[in-house]
């Protein structure tokens, strides 16, 4: 076998098999080698792999080509295509969706406060007022209205308040409401979707760290 530079390396890691693609050669060469590799590799049942393009930015078409190739010649399937690079638009989007948007005001009856990312309300949310966020909602005051966290569908979001006495809490597409009888609110609580019961549950704020350890991890949430 002649001396030949390998543009594709496979590595087994604790996250499964990662296929690293060279980021300097042309995309055609890469595809050619990938095809050879995939054809010759012995497939051992169905495996999920991660493709890592390193510092190469892959367009949507290129991603499709890679996926098609692997799909066609092997039993492997792509779990995720990873990369070290982002476009400017993607980074703005990521920034927008993961930063905390603060507001100092009382959200009164009939008012709707809508943000991208996390919402921090420094003030009360009164009955009849609504806070909507694509991310988490933090209320430094009394939450007595409606809070809808992760309204784009992110169930991992939470709603936390200094004083929890909401009329409704919504997280992604789950809803929970206050009971029909009069209840007292409680200080320092948060609401989250329990993955076992698939329902919104309340817990004391000091348990948030245990239940959502990655709450503020930008890359865990955004990518």
């Amino acid at each position: 076998m002649s001396e030949m530079k390998h543009y594709i390396t496979m590595k087994g890691t604790n996250k499964g098999i990662v296929v690293y693609l060279d980021d300097q050669c042309s995309f055609e060469i890469l595809l050619q080698e990938l095809e050879d590799k995939v054809k010759t590799s012995e497939s051992s049942g169905k495996t999920e792999i991660t493709v890592h393009s390193q510092y190469r930015y892959l367009t949507d078409d290129q991603r499709k080509d890679i996926a098609q190739l692997i799909d066609q010649y092997s039993d492997m399937s792509i779990k995720k295509i990873d990369s070290y690079v982002l476009t400017r638009e993607e980074s703005y989007e990521l920034y927008d969706n993961t930063t905390v948007k603060s507001v100092i005001k009382t959200i009164r009856s009939g008012q709707v406060h809508e943000v991208k990312g996390d919402a921090l309300v420094i003030g009360d949310v009164n009955p009849g007022g609504t806070v909507l966020a694509t991310g988490n909602i933090f209320v430094m005051g009394k939450l007595r209205g409606i809070a809808h966290a992760g309204f784009n569908g992110d169930e991992s979001c939470v709603v936390a308040a200094s004083y929890m006495h909401p009329s409704q809490i919504r997280i992604a597409n789950k809803i929970s409401r206050a009971p029909d009888y009069d209840v007292e609110g409680s200080p320092r609580e948060f609401a989250y979707v329990n993955s076992e019961t698939e329902q919104i549950e309340l817990d004391q704020l000091q348990h948030l760290q245990k239940i959502r350890p990655n709450l503020l991890d930008v890359f865990e949430r955004g990518l």
Binding site: T106, R108, S109, G110, Q111, N126, P127, G128, G129
Partner: peptide, 12 residues
Amino acid sequence: VRDADRIIGLLE
């Protein structure tokens, strides 16, 4: 009180 809250929001 609820209506007053609404009106205060509008007045603000």
